[in-house]
């Protein structure tokens, strides 16, 4: 019996390994394709540019991954991006008027911190709605999607905050540096991705918090019974997601040196796509930060590569959809195969 199944199971194991690494395989495939098909794609300078574009979506997707692992969803991230961009723009141009003839102005660091605080606050609202008021995550964050976008529009009456190049008087000259500046030859947004990525990876793999995040998504009732503070864990993931979105908002405002209230529309969908492509299960309990980042790179390389090839944006949209569905189909295949291999091994061990 053992002799008969052994070669089969080795094949299955090899296939399983390939399926597990599918996002990585997809990454190598798209890289190889565009290096061949798109002019100047394979260059250090372009690698930096692509990473810079990917970093925005990857940051959102990291926050989204934690949320999805707990079995939730955060639809509000795109609106938080817009709101935080507007907060940064507002603080740069208007300061905060105390109403008694004084206006408080902030320097770059303070502006970044306040914008992040706003993002985290929206996350807190999401968390409270979900944990205390029992609103389903999809509905709660759909609500905050509208509220945050509306607030962004209200902040400027729908206008763009232009010319955010900073002023020496208020210590904001360094604001454009966030989007355009480089450290050791790499744009700051890439360093942000590296930092947040490592932090999130560390949390998910090495900390109790991380184990609890997986536990909540895997079996919420079971986690609760074994002493996991489920509500606290959920609060954390939505706050973290809000924080990531705030970073993205600030970076975009700085890159464009302008903030527009429609910034970040549909970003939430790209973030979900990256997480799913990276192997995060929408039903919770399963997902990896590394996978999500690779997923974001696959999507980003696809769209940048197609732009460089001059392919119509209509096709870009279709292709993105196909890739996402393919990823989930492969995911299902992996699950089935995994179950079969496990059964075979069990049978073999008997």
């Amino acid at each position: 019996m053992t002799a008969l199944t052994a070669p089969k199971s080795t094949n299955a194991n090899a296939l399983l390994l390939l399926l597990r690494l599918r996002t990585f395989v997809a990454l190598i495939l798209v890289l190889a394709f565009f290096s061949w098909a798109a002019p100047n794609f394979l260059s250090t300078a372009n690698a930096v540019i692509v990473s810079k574009h990917v970093a925005l979506n990857a940051l959102l997707a990291i926050g989204m991954t934690f949320v999805i692992i707990t079995g939730g969803i955060d639809l509000s991230v795109g609106s938080i991006v817009g709101l935080c961009a507007m907060v940064a723009g507002w603080l740069m141009l208007n300061g905060i008027n105390l109403g008694i003839g004084y206006t408080v102005w902030f320097n770059t660091v303070e502006i970044v911190l306040i914008a992040c605080a706003v993002g985290v606050s929206v996350g807190i609202v999401n968390g409270v709605l979900i944990t205390r008021l029992g609103v389903a995550p999809f509905i709660a964050t759909l609500g905050t999607l509208y509220i945050a976008r509306g607030a962004a529009l209200l902040s400027s009456g729908g206008r763009t905050f232009p010319n955010l190049s900073g002023s020496a008087e208020f210590g904001t000259l360094s604001f454009p540096f966030i989007g355009a500046g480089k450290i050791l030859g790499l744009p700051i947004i890439i360093w942000l991705l590296v930092l947040v990525g490592l932090l999130a990876h560390y949390i998910s793999r090495r900390t109790t918090l991380g184990r609890h995040i997986y536990a909540v998504g895997g079996n919420e009732r079971g986690a609760q019974l074994s002493g996991v503070k489920v509500n606290r864990i959920k609060m954390f993931v939505y706050m973290f997601s809000g924080f990531c979105a705030a970073l993205v908002g600030v970076v975009i405002a700085s890159q464009l040196q302008a903030s527009h209230p429609a910034t970040g529309e549909t970003f939430e969908l790209n973030a979900i796509a990256a997480a799913v492509l990276g192997g995060t299960s929408m039903s919770g309990g399963r997902g990896r930060i590394g996978g999500t980042i690779v997923g974001a790179f696959v999507i980003g390389i696809l769209s940048d590569g197609l732009i460089m090839m001059g392919v119509s944006s209509f096709w870009q949209t279709v292709i993105k959809g196909v890739v996402i569905i393919a990823a989930v189909v492969v995911d299902q295949a992996q699950n089935k195969l995994q179950a079969r291999v496990a059964l075979q091994q069990e049978a073999a061990n008997k």
Partner: peptide
């Protein structure tokens, strides 16, 4: 040398421009 949509959007134009510039310096 390049023609792409950026859907009237400032953010999209930023990224599309960067990529077009890479392909066609």
């Amino acid at each position: 040398v390049a023609q792409q949509t950026a859907n009237w959007s400032q953010t999209e134009a930023y990224t599309v421009m960067e990529s077009m510039l890479q392909a066609n310096p």
